[in-house]
Amino acid sequence: MSDSTASARASEPLAEDLARARERVNGIIIDKREVIDLAFSALLAGGHLLIEDLPGVGKTTLAQALSLSIGGSWQRIQFTSDMLPADILGVSVFRRQDERFEFHPGPIFANVVLADEINRATPRTQSALLEAMAEGQVTVDGRTHRLPQPFFVIATQNPLDLTGTYPLPDSQLDRFLLRTRIGYPSQEEERRLLIEPDRRDLLADMDPVLDPERVIELIGTATALHLSEPVLDYIQALVAATRGHPAVRAGLSPRAALALTQTARAHALVMQQDFCLPDNVRTVFPALAGHRLQPVTESAQSGADIANEILEATPVP
């Protein structure tokens, strides 16, 4: 496929840099290309990523590698049950010498924010984060502070240890563009992990390939990526299938459809393509729809199951 798929873009340095950034992250997070591609897609589609997985599978490393590769600032917030919104957003402190309040930005003011174990915080704190994610800005004491651009949140949830947690309400889940899991590495890859030097040392040696401006540029490129009629047909067919599915309480909203389109484009860009393929739609669909589709109570299927079922039942035009 030397000159067919993804020809023109490969010559552009921007796309090359994106590819290099992706390779860097791939070098650190072993055997998780799909997750990394999804993470980049969420970033380039201007959304946020929710990772549901056990501790120790590399969530933090992924977030860190990602932020390092794109060259922005990064913060990690470990959520706890006694955390207050101000601990995330920042506080206004009265400065006596100036006789005025000064805003001390919280950890959310970074290009990449890792919100670890988000379900441990109280709903109030959670919603402070989610609002900031949605708005791209923070309002404290009546004053609005813009968050840096690009702004990308990777939140994690531990699906097993649920005691004393406040799982994100379903209505809040769709603040995250994609939800995925990382999973265990394969035998060989895990061995590599055991033999090779500590990932933290690798991270320390990593230098950025991109910078925030170029990421914004890439986001713009993704928005304009060519998406043909048949792919639109496919997206619409998938969305329609969720709406008619008997095990789903509510199908995908038009906003979700828009998000699907945008994410498919971003994924195509990550895959170094000139245009969007149904393959991109397929790849991102479970991560995009899984947490948005709420199964009816008597259903044994999870949202992700339903998403996969719909993928298998919908013909590709």
Binding site: S4, T5, H226, S228, P230, V231, F275, C276, L277
Partner: peptide, 11 residues
């Protein structure tokens, strides 16, 4: 198939 993709989805 790559060629086909170019034509069909790459317009």
């Amino acid at each position: 198939t790559g060629l086909y993709n170019d034509i069909r989805y790459g317009d």
